[in-house]
Nucleic acid binder design. Structure first.
Lengths: 126, 126
DNA sequence: TATAATAATAGTAACAATTATCATTATTGA
DNA sequence: TCAATAATGATAATTGTTACTATTATTATA
């Protein structure tokens, strides 16, 4: 179901998600919020994250293991550290024309694209 | 553990995976192989797919839901149909220099990259 | 070619991530 | 203020995957 009524829990989830830039999982968000809202439920976090990502208000990112969420809905790229599994933003300029070009190599229509770099972050290199 | 000894099950898994180009999940492979090898175990399929993708012999692809596997280990791109969740190959030419360029936008080293187009396949459009 | 070492298997249990259920609570519009 | 119902918290159920263990298959060597 789509969002219709307002809720404190959803506000808190959005606030937390937009303040941080570490692309937390549902459980990481839940644990952080649980301190301020002690009777928040993990199911509520999942339900809201799914509604919001269905809306296009936030992004859901699947890279193996638990899904990550990104409060920045504008398309941008990511890097996954294969050591610590953390997900980082990559400010590589958006490839504006890649979807148009890719149409020639696809049977269907394209609505978006993702690029994920895999590597090792500085924290894990040292 | 890495592959050392030979096994019929692993051969059958590789054969099946390389013959088809629909990026099956572990369970889809299992069901297809179960006909020829009635006492194949799902755990065996998972174990081998993981060993082979750790090797770099095959690719594991996470796009939400169950992981998909690709017998083509050469880097190439994919399209995910948001309707039927099927994964297609995209023969878009490899962006050879993107990893080198991306280094400037990343704190760490890059070892590979993936591009996934999201869209609707022809089967789902009609 | 027999044998010993051990990797790989089948079958099953356990686990992790996510979704569904449902009685209760909160929001909203009349 | 009240009725309608969306959203919640708590928990059960489901799904995808990994771990465990006794047995079987592979392989190197005597």
């Amino acid at each position: 179901m789509a969002v219709t009524k307002h809720s404190k829990q959803r506000d808190a989830i959005m606030d937390e998600l937009c303040q941080r830039h570490d692309h937390p999982t549902a459980e990481e968000l839940y644990l952080a919020l649980k301190m301020k809202m002690p009777n928040l439920s993990l199911g509520t976090v999942y339900r809201n994250l799914n509604m919001l990502s269905d809306d296009g208000t936030i992004q859901k990112i699947s890279v193996g293991g638990a899904d990550h969420f990104d409060g920045n809905a504008n398309n941008h790229y990511h890097m996954l550290c294969s050591e610590c599994k953390r997900l980082y933003d990559v400010t590589y300029p958006l490839l504006e024309d890649i979807e148009k070009k890719a149409v020639n190599f696809v049977d269907g229509k394209i609505t978006s694209h993702t690029i994920t770099f895999i590597g090792v972050c500085n924290g894990c290199l040292h």
